[in-house]
Design a protein around this nucleic acid. Structure first.
Length: 278
DNA sequence: AAGTAGGTCAACCGCTTTAAT
DNA sequence: TATTAAAGCGGTTGACCTACT
């Protein structure tokens, strides 16, 4: 049995809010607050709206100091850098931008910023892939859709976004054997420093990312070492089903546990991410 | 001028998390 | 500690608008 609905669906109004409804909700909340109970609010005011709808309307439109309209260059940068590091956690991103709502930022990202950042080429490729009905694997966390394509590689190297880190020199030259036929992938973080060792087995098992280095078997990764992963990663196994495997250079990783795949994936910068269609 | 395609954004849906009991 | 309901959240939808043919 499903969960009970939060309101009587048959008796609530849906769709756009009228100015009268806005006024009722706004003036009530300004005078009395929400009372800590959105569900009860519409009845008190005499609005035929779901409590959730009232909450959304207030948060996204009616509450004071909401900023609408164009985003500044500075805001763009904040959104992009946060998206790259934490993915689509809009409420967290919105918390860094006073006056902006998560819904606004989400819409802005989906309709404009993504294109601005990734370019038209990326959009077109996505559309073509969908049209061709090819299988797109996008399961890396919830943040970035990664499409594997062993023919038409998307490479943003010559048109790189100012919001993303520069490619490491290694990405501009062919990968060394035995990865000559593999596609370079990139992890990035602000805290790269020295490099040491080689990760030769990196895989996801359930929600835990694991890798082994210098011939050692897979072990879980600690989040404290995430930032130390080296930039260049070569994919050799386009299989998400039983673990995505990479080989890569790394950076002094040794203690490993409790890094979930979402955290890891947030370190992957999609525009630089050549991929393979399976 | 009319029809169509694409873009935008407010609002909804349903799942997850949190808080109260 | 378990259960329940509300709040929070992100993905998706669809109405409206604009640009293009």
């Amino acid at each position: 049995m499903g969960r009970a609905p939060c309101c009587d669906k048959a008796n609530v109004k849906k769709g756009p809010w009228s100015p009268e409804e806005d006024m009722k909700l706004k003036s009530y909340i300004e005078q009395h607050g929400t009372g800590g109970n959105w569900i009860a609010l519409p009845q008190k005011i005499g609005l035929k709206r779901c409590g959730k709808s009232c909450r959304l309307r207030w948060l996204n439109y009616l509450r004071p100091n909401i900023k609408h309209g164009d985003f500044s260059e500075e805001e763009d940068k904040i959104i992009c850098s946060l998206y790259v590091s934490i993915g689509s956690r809009w409420s967290i991103i919105a918390a860094q931008l006073p006056g902006r709502t998560d819904n606004d930022i989400k819409n802005y990202w989906n309709t404009r910023l993504k294109k601005k950042l990734f370019g038209k080429h990326y959009e077109k490729q996505q559309q073509q892939l969908v049209r061709r009905g090819r299988k797109i694997k996008s399961g890396i966390g919830n943040s970035m859709a990664i499409v594997f394509d062993n023919q038409g590689i998307y490479n943003n190297n010559n048109n790189q976004s100012p919001f993303l880190p520069k490619l490491s020199p290694a990405l501009n030259s062919p990968p060394p054997p035995p990865y000559a036929n593999y596609q370079p992938l990139q992890f990035h973080s602000n805290s790269f420093s020295n490099t040491a060792g080689v990760i030769d087995d990196l895989r996801r098992t359930d929600s835990v990312l694991q890798f082994g280095m210098d011939g050692a078997s897979c072990q879980p990764v600690t989040s404290t070492h995430v930032g130390e992963l080296e930039k260049v990663v070569y994919s050799n196994t386009p299989s998400f089903d039983d673990g995505l495997q990479f080989s890569c250079d790394n950076n002094g990783l040794n203690l490993m546990n409790d890094l979930d795949w979402g955290e890891m994936s947030s370190l992957i910068s999609a525009p630089l991410y050549p991929s393979m269609i399976i």
